[in-house]
């Protein structure tokens, strides 16, 4: 239980750091509400013109928006902040401060994954769950669908983690890469079901950055579609991606040669 205790400590330390700037809470809230507002109103505008979008009704697409907000919130809660501290402009790999991460007597990948928490993201998480509940109100959700959704969501978060970890690992080869931001931009495509995109883009979103796994499949699971096999496939793919990304990260670690400090 050493790991869990460590995670708890990381959360407490991050919380102390964040509450030192209480006004940031209101700024985060504003950003969360703007993100929510533009997303939901934008969706409303489209469905004021059409009834379905490639077979997706308003309620289903709204549920997908909820999933998108939930997954982005989980990414913002710990995966994103942890990776951003390591990779990016002027961050640890670039400045050589990564030495101090390597020196800690903890597994390095574990440390960078759970070290930094951004607890304000819990606001985004609440809003995301709210949108999902709002989208699903009035429809019957079976226990099996809920279970399937939980598995799909796990696969989604795992896939996001794996992609971000791989992108972080690549900065060991080229510290100037800002793949985290590239991922942020591409992830915006996850606001809509992948089936609406043209074939070439759908291909990229399936095999390069598995955006479909991240939002479309969980949304299909909760709206009661029979997606048992896609969910299992997504989970398998996410696990494979995680293993691959971890391997890439450990290879990257070996390349790290510090920087002057």
């Amino acid at each position: 239980m050493k790991w869990l205790r460590l995670i708890r400590t990381f959360i407490v330390v991050s919380a102390r750091q964040e509450t030192a700037y209480p006004i940031n809470f209101w700024i985060s809230l504003l950003h969360a509400l703007l993100n929510l507002g533009t997303g939901v109103i934008g969706l409303g505008v489209i469905f004021s013109q059409v009834d379905t979008l490639q077979g997706w009704a308003f309620a289903d697409t709204l549920a997908l928006m909820g999933v998108f907000l939930i997954v982005s919130a989980l990414r913002g809660l710990f995966i994103g902040p942890g990776m951003e501290t390591v990779a990016g402009l002027g961050q640890e790999v670039m400045t050589g401060a990564f030495d101090f991460v390597l020196l800690r007597p903890v597994h390095t990948q574990f440390l960078i994954t759970f070290r930094t928490w951004r607890l304000f993201s819990l606001v985004d998480l609440t809003l995301g769950v709210g949108v999902l509940v709002w989208a699903m109100q009035g429809s019957q959700i079976e226990a099996a669908a809920l279970l399937l959704f939980a598995v799909a969501l796990l696969a989604a978060v795992l896939a996001v983690y794996a992609v971000l970890l791989a992108m972080t690992a690549l900065t060991f080869w080229s510290p100037g890469l800002m793949l985290g931001w590239v991922f942020d931009a591409i992830f915006q495509l996850a606001r809509y079901p992948v089936s609406i995109y043209p074939p070439w883009l759908r291909f990229l979103l399936t095999w390069c950055v598995p955006v479909g796994v991240m939002t479309t499949i969980p949304a299909q699971a909760i709206t009661g579609e029979n997606v048992l096999w896609p969910v299992m496939g997504a989970l398998g793919a996410a696990l494979a991606l995680t293993v691959g990304a971890s391997w890439l990260f450990s290879r990257g670690l070996r390349r790290y040669s510090s920087a002057s400090s």
């Binding site: 489209i46 979008l53 931001w181 590239v182 931009a185 591409i186 609406i196 043209p198």
Partner: peptide, 21 residues
């Protein structure tokens, strides 16, 4: 270039969605 890519994505998503609609 990464910043510019980020700015062009929202209209790009709108384009793909409206084309599909």
């Amino acid at each position: 270039f990464v910043l510019a890519f980020g700015w062009m994505v929202p209209p790009l998503v709108s384009m793909l969605v409206w084309s599909a609609a």
